[in-house]
């Protein structure tokens, strides 16, 4: 299976360990990820400001994948959101497709509505499949308790994601964690948003949203949070110390990207998965394996 990997803005500059581990694990599982250097911002941050521009940015990216005959595999959930939405709208609204194609023509691009978009983890869940993943496990992580954060745009709006997982009772990430042998920790605030989208508008509220989940997951005795989005990583990883200081609490909760968890279970070294480059170094966690 071959797909174009859409890195977005944040991952290739600030979350290299996510990109590295995803590409490493994909290679082992027979999923070929092709880089397209001309990809730009997905369009998500512009949707609030100017709908048409956001749609054109997304459509241009879809067109670049279509030129190469590839579907898109995303790492960031916000990219997943706008690319899936525009792919869905252009596949179902002929008038919009015509208008969009006409404008893309001014840039020497064309798009006929064929590209499908899936988050990397959804590709693992649906296309690689849990059985293949279980077969690839060489070092079951049964010493770990891991709490998964689904975030929002991996699942919702569920209509444009073909309802591949239930938005009110999601299980794909927990099943993927269980497949590695780790214990999938259930917790009350599992479905809650990280708050990342309003960090620049109301920092206090955004950080309080993130705090509620950090508190909950810590209380449940998890060794780590499983993340699949770089924005969620900003909230739970990069801002974890700030939240702890602001609220006078203490956390020892490393964040891991799912492909890092899977990679460890597949027997890949933590260096090759960039674990020590994560916002919070998972020293205690790694000591548990060795």
């Amino acid at each position: 299976m071959k797909m174009a990997v859409f890195l977005g803005c944040t991952v290739p500059v600030r979350n290299l360990s996510y990109e590295l581990s995803a590409k490493r694990v994909a290679g082992e599982l027979g999923l070929e990820l092709v880089d397209i250097p001309e990809f730009s911002c997905c369009g998500y941050p512009i949707k609030s400001v100017h709908h048409e521009t956001a749609y054109l940015l997304a459509a241009r990216n879809l067109a670049l994948a279509e030129e190469r005959g590839l579907d898109i595999c995303t790492l960031c959930s916000a990219c997943t959101s706008v690319l899936t939405e525009v792919s869905y709208e252009l596949a179902t609204n002929e008038a919009l497709l015509d208008a969009t194609s006409e404008t893309l023509g001014m840039l020497g691009k064309k798009y006929s509505g064929k590209v499908r978009v899936k988050h990397f983890v959804r590709v693992l869940y649906e296309d690689v499949g849990l059985k293949s993943i279980e077969r690839a496990i060489k070092r079951p992580l049964d010493m770990f308790r891991i709490a998964s954060h689904y975030g929002c745009h991996y699942l919702k709006p569920s209509k444009i994601y073909d309802r591949f997982d239930h938005p009110e009772a999601p299980e794909s990430l927990d099943r993927l964690v269980s497949a590695t042998g780790a214990f999938a920790v259930d917790y009350r605030t599992k479905k809650d948003c990280c708050g990342g989208a309003i960090l620049g508008v109301d920092e206090e509220t955004a950080l309080s949203m993130a705090r509620a989940k950090l508190d909950d997951i810590s209380d449940r005795g998890a060794d780590a949070i499983n993340l699949i989005c770089p924005f969620c990583s900003v909230m739970y990883g990069a801002n974890q110390r700030k939240i702890a200081a602001n609220h006078n609490v203490k956390y020892d909760l490393p964040i891991l990207y799912y492909p890092q968890i899977l990679g460890l279970a597949m027997g890949i070294s933590h260096e090759e998965l960039g674990l020590m480059q994560n916002p919070i170094r998972p020293r205690a966690l790694l000591a548990k394996i060795s």
Binding site: C152, P167, E168, C193, A197, V201, A206, M209
Partner: peptide, 15 residues
Amino acid sequence: GDFIWLCATCYTCHE
């Protein structure tokens, strides 16, 4: 108003 910019686009209400 600032308040329209406070939607975190989590889509919970949308669902």
